[in-house]
Design a protein around this nucleic acid. Structure first.
Length: 931
RNA sequence: AGGCGCGUAGCUCAGUGGUAGAGCACUACCUUGACACGGUAGGGGUCGGAGGUUCGAAACCUCUCGCGCCUACCA
């Protein structure tokens, strides 16, 4: 076994085989069997978009959820992590439309039916890709239960939900002002509109002439072209400037229309602009409301593509932008312009296409949200569902308290078609299946509503629709409500709140007990990852390794190489130190990294160096196991029984105690969704306590002849290591499975570590006495090492050591730990243990560690002679480097022109060298003193 | 405009009243029989600023400066 283990851990050699093994063993399967009495843990996976390739956000989600899933599974829960794919209405339609465009066709050329066939075909080809990528991360959902939001079973749930809400009058159809994307050719919900701030616009002022008079009224607008749809000008009722004009009629300069000056205290702020507001009810939300208050005519002036329509007179056919220019020009020609002022404005943009959204009057389907929101608010308020981190509860509440009705219809082809049918008289029949006749007039000529539902309508049903709802399936009975719902905070409104409302409404219970929210993965500088910035990192490139050239080819195809590379390295300064690319970090290192970020953080700044650090940790685990296996060959221990051992040796009692401590912290972290704390506790335990102390302490025992102590130590080591691997498994599943399989383990263990019991703190053994005593020993060791290091003693050199303590108990303790002290300090002979108060031996340096005085003798070292010459050499070298650096930093060109991090680094080096010079000078002085 | 949050080591961030922490970076020494993807030791902080509460404040309160995000509005 161990001799064949390679010296370095290579993830690529082990990851694929264990994933196949888990699948073959059915490790990920959940059970519906009523006879299965295990407690249940269920976590619905946020279904990634069918269009998507795996990005960092998915990797984060998959990691966090997999840790929770694997942890519960090992704790004996009947664990269901439900995977799936979202049909992602607009995104997917856009992708396939692009494909058609390359063939020179539009979706209208092929027709609705053929187009949908094309989408399905495309879905079949690339829709499974992301699930394959999730496997590379080690994700362990129950794949057999994977659902696609367009599956027939999901369609049935969607229709059922729609019909019930319609029957309850919670879904209705209304004609209102809506957000129209002229590019996507569909209505958008409020949430799909992104308000982009800070655009430089202008406030344009022009005059309307008053009919039958020379007087005029000047209005200010950011959208001059909408004046073609004006049906009033409003002033504040109390504004003294306009008192005489109330009710007067105005002449439209371009179309044959007169409209009134009205007074409205809600719309008009007399201090803004001219205090007179043009009112365009058909293309502005405030004006629409004003129009309703005053019964104004609503004149739509755009067609669905954003061009001016027949109501725009001779401007007809012009695009919005062109129309604006032309309107301004013609107003100028007629002498009606009254100047412009710069004005900062916020532009409402389609979150998909980035096009400026046009408010339009249109009939659409809506969900009445208030009655649904109230129970969802109550469920969080009374703790039936807990939101973690808690601060997000405020955001959730704020949204639900101010919720507007949800526009759920979309003018797309790809999606769940609305289950409503119209007869030629316009009567509506809403039904689960296509009805034969109109419910009102029994006409048999029916046409289904052409619109589809917002993608989030089906997503909102996810926690119960995936389990077979509306049927009362065993799965539904068992796995609803889910235990946890874990996702990014960016979809609290889109998804979490809607699942809460839908779940409470249809299932009469919350959809999940906890909502766990994580932040957004951003680049190392905190910038959002985007193709334009060239800072997108594909998680698979971190797992398998990739050259920076390949990465920039993917993110910035066609861009000049140098430029793209510079952009990339600027986004990831720590990657710039890695040469020409990322090595293969492996899935485990990436997972451990992602789990190590605090869930509180809104931004998770991905630092490649950090992944490298955890890659090193994986290698550490690998080599620690290798060492234990190596020594076991010389020092066979009995096969572990699974019982927690009770070693008698103090060091072993100590490591058992630290194990208990680490397991307790890990358990707390995992329970509280503080995976950062959990992973840190395991990291510290494994590296600092197990490897740095215990493995070093046990070396002399294990390297010696077979002994009773040796057997006890070997048994302790096997237990601690096997337990550590189980504790680490949810974070680093591949590595731990590989090592666990070759490590001696109790016969009672199952075939895979993934099914082995998760260690309880009781698999360690808390021991305050051992903790306290070893701390004294370690402090003395550290003090002695510090003296050695500060006096430049060669690491291999052996020094005389005297330890003094007033307390006889401490002296007894130190005497018992002579071997350990001797090994870790590298003393010449056994350390001398004495009572405090004697003279300081000549040529020795003393330090105080708690109640122990530590005296290290420095005379008589063979190396001393050469040592002094070396110190002198070092001093010369440092002086030289210092001079170079000082000169460099004194040069203004360097300080100004070199990248700031290079200058900062030079300064740090300078400081370091100065400190070294000081220490070397002290060392030389001491050497002189000693001789 | 309202809401939420942030400001702690060079960088990224933990830390909810009790001796300022981690990873990376930095300095020195060391290929020591698991691991140089390593070891040992070290340097670095007026916890954004001011005031207050307290025996004691990075943490609690008030004010203030700087920076994010979200929601709404903007003729």
């Amino acid at each position: 076994m161990s001799p064949e283990m390679p010296k370095a851990y290579e993830p690529a050699d082990i990851e694929p085989k264990w994933y196949a093994f888990w699948v073959e063993q059915g490790v990920f399967r959940a059970s519906d069997d009523p006879a299965d009495r295990r407690p249940v843990y269920c976590i619905p996976m946020p279904p990634p978009n069918v269009t998507g390739a795996l990005h960092m956000g998915h990797a984060l989600t998959a990691t966090l959820e997999d840790v929770l899933t694997r942890w519960h599974r090992m704790r004996g829960y009947n664990t269901l992590w439900t995977p799936g794919i979202d049909h992602a209405g607009i995104s997917t339609q856009v992708v396939v439309e692009w494909q058609l465009r390359r063939e020179g066709k539009s979706r209208h050329d092929v027709g609705r039916e053929k187009f949908i066939e094309r989408v399905w075909q495309w879905k079949g080809e690339s829709g499974g890709r992301i699930a394959l990528q999730q496997r590379e991360l080690g994700a362990s959902p129950d794949w057999a239960r994977s659902k696609f939001t367009m599956d027939p079973s999901m369609a049935r749930a969607v229709n059922e939900a729609f019909v019930r809400l319609y029957d309850e009058k919670l879904i209705y159809r209304a004609t209102r002002l809506i957000n129209w994307c002229v590019d996507c050719q569909t209505v958008l919900s409020d949430l799909e509109v992104e308000n982009e701030e800070g655009a430089n616009g202008e406030l344009f002022e022009f005059a309307y002439k008053i009919a039958g008079s020379d007087e005029e009224i000047v209005v200010a607008t950011t959208r001059p072209e909408t004046m073609l749809g004006d049906t009033a000008v409003a002033v504040h009722p109390d504004d003294p400037r306009y008192q005489h004009l109330h009710g007067k009629m105005l002449l439209h300069p371009f179309v044959d229309r007169q409209f009134p000056i009205i007074t409205d205290a809600i719309l008009v702020d007399p201090k803004f602009g001219t205090g007179a507001v043009k009112v365009t009810p058909a293309h502005d939300f405030n004006d629409f409301a004003t129009g309703k208050r005053h019964g104004l005519q609503e004149i739509t002036i755009f067609d669905l593509s954003g061009a001016m329509n027949e109501n725009a007179g001779h401007f007809r056919g012009l695009d919005r932008k062109e129309a604006r220019k032309k309107v301004k020009r013609e107003l100028e020609e007629r002498g009606l312009t009254r100047g412009t002022k710069p004005h900062l404005l916020t532009l409402p943009k389609c979150s998909r296409s980035g096009t400026i959204v046009e408010p339009m009057i249109s009939p659409q389907w809506y969900v009445n949200m208030k009655p649904l929101a109230e129970p969802a608010l109550a469920a969080v308020a009374d703790g039936r569902t807990r939101i973690i981190p808690e601060e997000w509860a405020k955001t959730y509440n704020h949204f639900l308290e101010n919720i507007q009705d949800w526009c759920i219809s979309r003018q797309l082809w790809w999606g769940h078609q609305i289950p409503a049918w119209y007869c030629s008289d316009g009567h509506v029949t809403v039904a689960r299946q296509a009805p034969a006749v109109c419910a009102t007039c029994h006409a048999s000529e029916l046409r289904q509503d052409q619109d589809v539902l917002d993608t989030w309508f089906s997503s909102g049903l996810w926690p119960f629709a995936t389990l077979g709802w509306p049927d009362a399936t065993p799965a539904l009975a068992r796995f609803y409500p889910a235990s946890d719902l874990e996702t990014g905070y960016d979809i609290i409104f889109f998804w979490v709140a809607r699942m809460m409302m839908m779940g409470l409404h249809f299932m009469k219970d919350v959809p999940f007990r906890r909502v766990l929210l994580h932040g957004m993965v951003v680049d190392e500088n905190g910038e959002k990852m985007s193709k334009v910035k060239g800072n997108v990192i594909d998680p698979l490139d971190l797992i398998h390794g990739a050259s920076f050239d390949d990465i920039i080819q993917k993110t910035l195809p066609g861009a000049p190489r140098e430029e793209a590379l510079a952009k990339f390295k600027k986004s990831y300064p720590s990657a710039a130190q890695m040469g020409t690319g990322f090595p293969a970090f492996g899935a485990d290192a990436l997972r451990f990294t992602l789990a190590s970020y605090s869930p509180q953080a809104k931004r998770i700044a991905l630092a490649p160096k950090r992944i490298e650090g955890y890659r090193h940790f994986c290698n550490k685990i690998w080599n620690a196991t290798r060492m234990v296996l190596l020594y076991l060959e010389q020092h066979p221990a009995p096969l572990p029984t699974g019982q927690t051992p009770s070693p008698r040796w103090r060091s072993s009692r100590w490591i058992m105690s630290r194990l208990a401590n680490a397991l307790e912290q890990t358990e707390r972290g995992l329970t509280d969704f503080r995976l950062d704390d959990a992973s840190a506790a395991l990291y510290r335990f494994f590296w600092d306590e197990l490897c740095s102390w215990y493995l070093e302490i046990t070396k002399p025992v294990l390297q010696a002849e077979k002994s009773e102590l040796g057997t006890e130590v070997a048994a302790t080591l096997v237990h601690v290591l096997e337990t550590s691997l189980r504790a680490l498994h949810p974070f680093v599943p591949f590595l731990t499975e590989e090592l666990w399989q070759i490590l001696p383990r109790p016969a009672s263990r199952p075939a895979s570590i993934a099914l082995a019991p998760y260690p309880m703190p009781g698999e360690g053994r808390a021991d305050e006495v051992a903790d306290r005593e070893m701390a004294i020993v370690f402090d003395a060791i550290i003090a002695a090492r510090t003296i050695r290091s500060e006096h430049e003693v060669h690491p291999a050199a052996q020094v005389p050591l005297v330890l003094r303590a007033a307390d006889p108990k401490i002296r007894a303790l130190l005497a018992e730990e002579l071997v350990t002290i001797r090994t870790l300090v590298k003393t010449a002979g056994d350390p001398v243990i004495e009572a405090s108060g004697g003279d300081r031996p000549p040529a020795s340096v003393m330090s105080v560690a708690g109640e122990v005085e530590v005296l290290v003798g420095l005379r008589g070292l063979v190396e001393r002679a050469t040592e002094e010459a070396r110190v002198d050499r070092e001093i010369k070298k440092v002086e030289k480097d210092l001079a170079v650096l000082q000169k460099k930093l004194a040069s203004p060109t360097f300080v100004e022109k070199a990248p700031s991090e290079v200058v900062a680094q030079a300064r740090e080096q300078l400081q370091g060298l100065e400190r070294t010079r000081k220490r070397l000078a002290e060392a030389r002085q001491l050497a002189a003193e000693l001789d």
